[in-house]
Simulated assay, not measured.
Amino acid sequence: MNTFSRVAMVIVGMTGLAAAQPKADTKAADPKMAPKAPDAKTPPKADAGAMPEMKPPTEIADMAKAAGGTWHCKGQGMDHSMKMQDMTATMKMKVAMNGWWIEGDFESRMGKEPFQFTSYTTFDPASKKWKRVMVESGGGWSTGESAGLKNGKVEWDLTAHSMMGEMPFRDHEDMTDAKAGAKFWGEFSPDKGKTWTKVYEMTCKK
């Protein structure tokens, strides 16, 4: 192979190698085209998809001001034999869970039998209704809702769960006579609303 052929092959090989290399970005080499550094004085833009700050409904704080504290109650309640017995009780109500719920701790004695429950009540702005969850001694629990105070009274529609099964339960609250105290009574239906049986009634004062 003569010298010309060898030089020609080297030139062709170098040309192919150069073609295989990535091309230099002429724009990046230009200082005027380089990306600008962020301005330290300019605050970062808020994320458009961020969730708004969650705050408890004001209705909960208003309820806590009116109902918070310790209530002392007297009345009658149904014991395990399905008979009404004299009852004394205390109910302590306070704001819980960073202002999102009203916690109610109820302790009573019906005759010789103790009975306790803890309830959590909150307000749902979407439905404009109060929501309640209750757990009680004996393993029962209830959930339900109320439209709230109307003409000094509150009606609760609940579903109670116990060893007897699931059944409708209604709580009635009457605050129309402040001097006499707040009156409460509850009833359940063993036949899906056809008939109702009163299980307690009491009057409470702070």
Rank of each mutant, 00 (worst) to 15 (best):
N2W: 01
T3H: 10
F4I: 12
S5E: 14
A8Y: 05
G13Q: 06
M14A: 15
L17E: 05
A19Y: 11
A19N: 07
Q21C: 14
P22V: 02
A24H: 10
T26F: 11
K27E: 12
K27H: 11
P31W: 05
P31C: 04
K32N: 14
P35K: 03
D39E: 07
D39R: 01
A40K: 14
K41R: 09
K41S: 15
T42H: 07
P43A: 08
K45A: 15
A46T: 11
A48Q: 12
G49Y: 08
M51C: 00
M51V: 11
M54E: 14
K55H: 09
K55F: 08
P56I: 07
E59F: 07
M63F: 12
A66T: 15
A67Y: 15
T70P: 01
K74C: 00
G75A: 03
Q76K: 12
Q76W: 07
M82W: 15
M87A: 09
T88K: 06
A89N: 00
A89V: 02
A89C: 09
T90A: 09
M91G: 02
K92V: 14
M93I: 11
M93W: 00
I102L: 14
E103Q: 15
E103K: 11
G104Q: 13
G104T: 14
D105H: 08
D105K: 09
S108Y: 00
S108C: 04
R109A: 12
R109Y: 07
M110N: 00
G111H: 02
E113C: 07
E113N: 10
E113H: 10
F115G: 13
F115K: 00
Q116P: 04
T118N: 04
T121P: 02
T121A: 01
W130V: 03
R132L: 15
V135P: 05
S137W: 05
G139K: 01
G140S: 08
S142R: 08
E145V: 12
E145G: 08
S146T: 04
S146F: 00
A147Y: 05
A147H: 10
K150I: 04
N151H: 05
K153V: 06
V154P: 04
L158D: 03
T159E: 14
A160T: 10
S162L: 01
S162R: 02
S162N: 06
M163Y: 07
M163W: 07
E166A: 13
M167G: 10
M167A: 14
H172Q: 06
E173V: 15
M175I: 04
D177M: 08
A178I: 11
K179V: 13
A180K: 13
A180Y: 08
K183R: 13
K183Y: 10
K183M: 08
W185H: 15
G186H: 01
E187K: 12
S189D: 10
D191R: 09
G193A: 05
G193N: 06
W196F: 05
V199L: 12
Y200I: 09
